[in-house]
Simulated scan of single mutants.
Amino acid sequence: MEYADVVVIGGGQSGLAAAGTLRRHGIEPVILEASARPAGSWPRYYDSLTLFSPARFSALPNAPFDGRGDRYPSRDDVVDYLTGHAVRLGVEIRTGTRVEAVERDGAAFTVRTADGRSIAASGVVAATGAFGNPVRPVLPGQERFTGELLHVADYRSPKNYAGKRVVVVGGGNSAVQVGYELAEVADVTLASRSAIRFLRQVRDGKDIHHWLTGTGFDHLPPEWLVHFVGGTLVLDAGRYQDALASGTLERRPMFTALDGDAVVWADGTREPVDAVLLATGYRPDLGYLRGLGALGPDGSPLHSGGISTTHPGLVYLGLEFQRSFASNTLRGVAADADHVIPPLAAHVRKAPAAVGL
Rank of each mutant, 00 (worst) to 15 (best):
V152P: 08
Q142H: 08
A108Q: 10
E148I: 06
K164P: 01
R117V: 07
E103H: 13
S118L: 05
V135H: 09
V152Q: 12
R104S: 06
V138Y: 01
A126R: 10
N160L: 12
D77N: 07
T128H: 04
A114E: 10
E92I: 05
G147D: 12
G84N: 15
G106A: 00
I119F: 05
A130I: 13
A107V: 13
S118Q: 14
G84R: 15
F131P: 08
Y72R: 08
V102M: 01
E92S: 11
E148R: 14
T83C: 11
Q142C: 04
R136Y: 06
A114M: 09
E92Q: 14
N160W: 14
L139S: 06
P73M: 08
G106C: 07
G84Y: 10
T113C: 06
P158G: 01
T128M: 05
Q142S: 04
V125W: 11
Y81D: 10
V79F: 05
T110W: 03
E143Y: 02
A162G: 14
R104Y: 06
A86Q: 07
F145N: 09
L89P: 04
R98M: 08
A114C: 03
A86G: 04
Y155R: 10
N160C: 01
S157R: 14
V91A: 11
T113W: 00
A107S: 15
L89S: 13
R94C: 00
G141C: 09
V99M: 02
G123F: 13
D70Q: 14
E100Q: 07
E100R: 11
A107K: 15
K164F: 03
A86F: 09
R88T: 09
S122Q: 12
A114T: 10
G84I: 09
N160H: 15
A107H: 15
K164R: 15
V79R: 01
F131A: 03
L139K: 09
V91H: 03
G84F: 07
Y155V: 06
V125G: 04
V152M: 07
G90N: 05
R88F: 00
T95N: 15
G116A: 04
Y161G: 02
Y81I: 13
D76C: 00
F131E: 04
D77W: 00
